[in-house]
Simulated scan of single mutants.
Amino acid sequence: MDGFQTKTPKRPRLDYPHGDARPALAETIQVSPGIEWVSMPLPFSLKFINLWLIDDGDGWTIVDTGMPLKETRDAWKQLLDARVTPDKPLKRVMVTHMHPDHVGCAGWLCYKYGAELWMSRLEYITCRMLVSDTGREAPKAGIAFYRRAGWDDAQIENYKERFGGFGRGVSQMPDAFERLSDGDMFRMAGQGWEVITGNGHSPEHSCLYCPELNVLISGDQLLPRISSNVSVHPTEPNANPLLDWMTSCERLLERLPADVLVLPAHNEPFRGAHERLGHLIDGHETALSRLKGRMQKGPLTVMDTFTSLFGRAIQPDEVGMATGEAIAHLNCMIHRGEVTSAVGEDGIARYRLI
């Protein structure tokens, strides 16, 4: 669900204090007082996810969890067995957002170690909703959504076969959670932390900021080398997540110092948050401008936009993310009053400049 890169201007130069180092499985690198960097494997194009093990003095906190793979669970057991005791338990598992690489092991960790789950309300509810789709047939609304986007029969069949797969990447969720909301303050690693929420990549993504340590645990809201996928989904076909995403980037610009140490979910810890946030905003505005230029030659289907948006051929296993991101850009243009759409006799939507 992460890291689908739109064609953007050249990335700014960022500072990577740990270079290209990465913790080995079941080992850690200390990145700030009380904060250990953990790396777990992923079974798709992004090979690793960064997770954070935090010493709270009287206990331990985990931020994000990895997927419920055997090697991930074994690595967590090895890490925690060396640290967790009756006098210093795993107190809580904090989850930035509900994508399986972040929330996948959360339930398993909470049940095994008696920890509390902390995450935002919309992320928790959305996760439970998507897990409940396991075993269901693909809904007619979803099929119609992708038909309008121009998918062919083989792509629709693939969607039907894969529908409900979210739940297979998530261990059983706890039945209760502690809510994280924007502006909340809490103690962690002996310091005060603030929750800064973002939207667009997921419903109510939580970033965790510590002014005293000058550290931001950013999840997928701010990544140094890849841009997080911002998609429209069949459940809300007229949504405008790209506006939500860019507004979230602007919020982080306002609330973070330029030299904050960013601990992202993917790639390496870095400094240069303001440059990167500005680059992400500019990249999407550039993509919107390219689409407008292309539409001056005539109306476009969703599939027609891929070359302008991504600057390369889209692989078969990328079509779902590419479609969602393309519709996000098109819906943003509709909300700005620049574009209108109409469904033709073939059932496919075409977008044209107003």
Rank of each mutant, 00 (worst) to 15 (best):
F4Q: 02
H205Y: 04
F4C: 03
T247H: 07
F4N: 03
D182R: 09
R11N: 07
Y16L: 14
L330T: 09
K140W: 02
G219A: 14
H201V: 11
A273G: 09
D81I: 00
M303L: 13
A176D: 10
P12Y: 08
M295K: 02
I348Q: 01
T235K: 07
E178M: 15
C105W: 03
E268F: 10
H205V: 09
L256D: 00
E236A: 11
G298L: 00
S248E: 07
E27N: 05
Q315T: 07
M185I: 15
K297L: 08
F145Q: 00
R225N: 14
M119F: 10
H201M: 10
Q155K: 08
M67H: 01
R255Y: 01
A328G: 06
D304F: 00
A313W: 04
F177N: 10
I156A: 03
S202M: 06
F145L: 00
G135T: 09
E212P: 02
Y124W: 12
A75E: 02
P9A: 04
C105V: 07
A326H: 01
P86L: 02
A115G: 13
Q30N: 05
L243D: 15
G324Q: 05
L180T: 06
H205C: 02
M303T: 07
A21Q: 09
Q172I: 07
M188W: 00
E338D: 14
L353E: 04
E236G: 01
S32V: 13
A326T: 07
N238M: 13
R251P: 00
G324A: 07
M321N: 07
Q315A: 15
R22Q: 09
W52G: 04
V103C: 13
K10R: 12
L253E: 15
S248Y: 08
H233S: 10
S206D: 08
L280R: 05
I334K: 15
N214Y: 03
Q172T: 11
D244M: 15
K77V: 12
G320D: 08
M321E: 11
Y124E: 07
R294S: 05
L223T: 12
A75K: 01
Q172V: 11
D87G: 15
G219I: 10
C332E: 09
A149R: 06
V215L: 13
E212M: 08
Q78M: 12
L222P: 05
P234Q: 05
Y16G: 10
D184G: 06
H18L: 14
M295L: 13
D220E: 11
L253W: 04
P23L: 04
L117Q: 02
P269M: 04
S308P: 05
D346N: 14
T197P: 02
V319H: 07
